[in-house]
Design a binder for these strands. Structure first.
Lengths: 243, 243
DNA sequence: CGAAAAGTTGAGGATCGTCAACATCTGTGG
DNA sequence: CCACAGATGTTGACGATCCTCAACTTTTCG
């Protein structure tokens, strides 16, 4: 695993020790129910999963899509019980580690602490974008923004992606993430395809006109550059993500 | 200022030193534009303000309401430029401090660091609730949730609040926070008042049937209890907020 | 007192949801 | 290798929620 920052050897060892245990789930398996004890965090090793909440009458809101390399559960750390459910969108492999091991990091490595906090803050900003998207944009703008966000995220770990990528998410899931129904997501994506903005082959998506999509969704890439200038121990030499 | 945690004397001194400078703004003043250099954080001393974004065509989304005692700008720390604008909802007094002073905290006090991070995570969870609210609830449920969240937040610093509080926010602002228009907020609140759920006198709101509101909005209080068991230096003796 | 801001109400319309039928894909077991 | 069930995607008709525009009233503040 690489990150946004050059780390010392002990820090790298620390990170590695958190990823010793692996566990697998099949597509649609529930990893953790909302309300379960929040004593674990997870690092995504492979596959996609998502956080969600369900209302009493069955309405579901998908809150976050988690990709390989993500740390899941930073916000839950503040509470005794998990705020969200966690479910596998594809077959996945996660590395769970207990949250009380965080205090080692907090004591031993201010620099790693700052990095963890930064990851949490990046998630936070992505949520702000999502609120704006759901609160003030119509269906096609929402879908455009959603797709762009996914590509941006994928490009961190796969810089070779140009315009085509695999999207292993059902339209119902996308709808639940964007405050729409599966039906309307289908209509919207069909229209976008007919308009020449995207192209679909099976589960793969091709972004045909990224400029147009960015304009309509007022999109900004939150993953590309981060600010490490305030980090204890000094700024990272490179501001861009390492492999 | 009190918090969720007993702190050591040096930590308290540290917090106090961050609040040396005060600055005042009038109602509707813009404290910081979106895109401005993100080199400052703010502690709210008095008054209410809010974070927001604006789209090119003028649509606005209010992202967060900030109350006295809040720390503003934790997520912006990850970026070189501010992600959101910041505007005064009432006359306010803020204590700005430079974000590069955070590294002192990170180096010297793991415990204070954990507390700061926890505050950020609480904000995060409130945003998750907001996404669910906007994405999957209709207008009256949204308004109900919004009011309950405000009361819960106010009760941290004013435990004597029972069912009545001052709400110095225009209906346009509330609408921009909930993904509605000012017109529809007016209609919705009038209906809620006629239904006996709330009562309005000038800018004051009285929650008449808190149980009913909580049920309809599926509300959970995110401010009441936090988990400090993982903190370096051990858990806080009391889990509930101190004065 | 006057101007700007904020709230209310009505009429009409757009966007998106609901329901339902059907088509297609996927994975598992015989 | 095929059959079948479940999951997923598509399309149409209709309806509900919420928006837009506009006029008006009330409140706030210099």
């Amino acid at each position: 695993m690489g990150y946004y920052l050059d780390l010392s050897d002990p820090d790298i060892a620390h990170l590695a020790s958190l990823q010793k245990h692996e566990q697998n789930w099949r597509q649609r398996d529930i990893v953790r129910e909302s309300g379960a004890p929040a004593d674990l965090l997870y690092v995504v090793k492979s596959g996609w999963c998502y956080s969600y909440t369900i209302m009493v009458d069955g309405r579901r809101q998908v809150l976050q899509i988690h990709h390989p390399g993500d740390v899941i559960g930073i916000p839950d750390v503040a509470y005794e019980r998990a705020v969200t459910g966690l479910q596998a969108a594809t077959d996945i492999c996660l590395c769970p580690f207990p949250k009380n091991r965080l205090d080692e990091i907090f004591r031993d490595s201010p620099r790693l602490t700052a990095l963890l906090m930064t990851l949490g803050m990046m998630d936070h900003v992505v949520l702000l974008d999502r609120i704006r998207t759901i609160g003030r944009m119509n269906a096609d703008e929402r879908v455009a923004h959603f797709l762009l966000e996914i590509v941006s995220r994928l490009r961190i770990t796969s810089p070779d992606i140009t315009d085509t990528f695999d999207l292993p998410l059902s339209q119902e899931l996308i709808g639940d993430a964007l405050g729409l129904t599966n039906v309307y997501v289908s209509r919207t994506m069909s229209l976008m395809e007919r308009a020449g903005l995207i192209q679909r082959m099976d589960r793969a998506i091709r972004i045909c006109d990224e400029r147009a999509l960015k304009d309509m969704a007022d999109f900004q890439d939150r993953y590309y550059r981060i600010d490490t200038s305030w980090f204890p121990g000094g700024a990272a030499p490179a501001l861009e993500p390492n492999a």
